[in-house]
Write a protein that binds this DNA or RNA. Structure first.
Lengths: 201, 201, 201, 201
DNA sequence: CATGAATGAGCGTTCATTCAT
DNA sequence: TATGAATGAACGCTCATTCAT
């Protein structure tokens, strides 16, 4: 009857994990196009053939990595949504964005490196577009609830700010004042309620 | 310089321009890795051999494109520097950033697509780092002069904001409210003097 | 033979049959080289490992299919041999050739597709050569008995005719007048008896 | 201005010829699927890259070989068409079929090896089908003109006979009595004129 | 200055086969 | 007996780069 189903699953999972880990590391370091499937397989300590047993194409590797991380982001959103006040929702969102970023720097480096390359993003494309649209509209809703007079515009700004900071951080994390920046952003975008000048200290 | 020498130079310049134009178009559309030197040569209407006479490697093409655009940015900085008040310097800088962006969308698309890939950026790397460092410190100086109490932090924020907006715009320019965003950014970062709430309309 | 041994044999036979059936279908449809062992195993509902238990190499699958069909042909020959007159022997041979063809189109499609590729036919080669030699000499004998003045030459012609018709039929059976063709061939090659030499110069 | 156009053409033609020659040899010997592009390039004494300069895909190599040989066949047909009497037309056709066969055994071996593999023949397919249809209908016309009472059926027979003989010859030319077979076929299919119906029932 | 024929390492992918369980 | 995870050589093809002319 072959190996036990449990053992098979264990072997499969172990290999899959190592492959994904190696793929992420290389994609983040050398970019998607600059990484060969051979490099990934060698780093993961498996044969090319086995890699292709689990991921039918190189693009599927990328897809799996995105799938994984989108779950993280979705969880953050859900948690932010549960907060009591509008301001808190915004704060949680911003803070968790940077937490996710720090926790998974390699993935975000990869993500930002790949986003501009339409050929690579094909297939990923639809999901990515929906993703950013969701983020933008959620931000808009939170900001309107928090008293913003131009929630759409503010959402665009906030989103761009988070994205820009994330990229700068990911490009060269050494010495980047991520915590202070986060505080400042939170302050800037949660002060609508008490009509205080948001950028004054 | 004899007549034929001058003619030669003219031809060389014309070819160079055509090559760079074709390179930019393809790099922006298909990415750096996704563009072959052959494609560029054909689009430019020259032979591969000639292209290699002018640009010894594919990376040199990329380098030349960056060189060109850095000159643009430097010019903007110089012009901003000439403004009368600190606030005006900031305003000019922000506005010219977005002007440059609109004028040369292809380049910025390419730039953001390539920035995360160290292998590609090798050689470019040093210059790019210096570039961003200069921008950051100039922004810091302006902001300090404009009354910011945390000019370094504000510079990081402003830089990230400009970069983030630029990328979102370049990813999908249709319907992006670039002008309003610019106004808002200018307002946000030039209000230190009169202590007015920066996000009120 | 104990009960479980018999059961084992039954299972083995059932698997073997399913594997061969699947192999034939795929070989005929996609060609020998275009069919992977995996595809066959999946179609047969067995694991690759089990398939390799029964057929040590891919070529052995092909070999087994040929073996099977050679038995068919041999049976036809034996039956033809039992006929009363030379003409009847020839008629039976021709008719059964086309019966076998219609009954097992997939196999003959495969056979004609593979015949010209020595690398594929290695190992098969010797047996195939002997096979055709036997057919040719049997045909020759029948024709001599039936009164042909050049039995070897006529055998070559008859063999070529059967083979050519078979291939044309198998290439595109729709609308091929197989029955009429058979009648005509029989007529052509059984008229020696009445000593009218329709084909003599 | 680069090499002279003439020299370039010479180089290109020389390489192309060597590549096609090597391709034909290998395809005929090991089959289409069994031949790797590397093998062809090595045999031709060129690099893989150069081969792909001239033949964008492996299938194009096959296509070029077919193109070449179809021209031969078409020429034969034209020449047969010019004959004075129906019988002569048939005779010329049959004889030239076998002449072409002897002159280019490798190609015909390849052709028969490939005909049954739909995947390979894709693209070739349409042309091949038209080709055989043309042959069949031309044969039919000739036979009707020559007095056949069932020209379509006779055409099918004659075509199958030529094809069958060709394949047997090509499979193992040593000792195959091609000349005698040709004579016999000509005799069989040109006797309609004297209104002795040798094949009528 | 200008051409394009020529190179060959490397890419993503497939697949017959092996073997621990 | 039966499984499917694992291997790695080979495939078709691409492409940055060189060089004789």
């Amino acid at each position: 009857m072959g190996r036990s189903a449990r053992l098979n699953k264990q072997m499969r999972d172990a290999s899959t994990r190592r492959i994904l880990k190696a793929a992420l590391r290389h994609f983040a370091t050398h970019g998607y196009a600059g990484t060969s499937v051979r490099m990934i397989a060698r780093s993961a300590g498996v044969s090319v053939g086995l890699l292709y047993n689990y991921f039918p194409t190189k693009a599927d590797l990328l897809g799996a990595l995105f799938e994984e991380s989108m779950r993280d982001v979705q969880a953050s959103f859900a948690s932010a949504d549960a907060a009591a006040t509008p301001s808190e929702r915004i704060e949680r969102l911003v803070r968790s964005a940077f937490e996710i970023l720090e926790k998974n720097r390699d993935f975000w480096r990869l993500s930002y490196g790949v986003r501009m390359q339409p050929a690579v993003v094909t297939g990923l494309g639809k999901r990515l577009e929906m993703w950013t649209a969701t983020i933008q509209s959620t931000l808009g809703r939170y900001l309107r609830e928090a008293g913003s007079r131009q929630p759409e515009l503010d959402a665009a700004l906030l989103f761009a700010l988070i994205d820009g900071v994330s990229q700068h951080y990911v490009l060269d994390p050494r010495g980047y004042p991520l915590a202070e920046v986060a505080d400042r952003i939170v302050a800037l975008f949660t002060r609508y309620v008490d009509s205080t000048a948001p950028d004054s200290t």
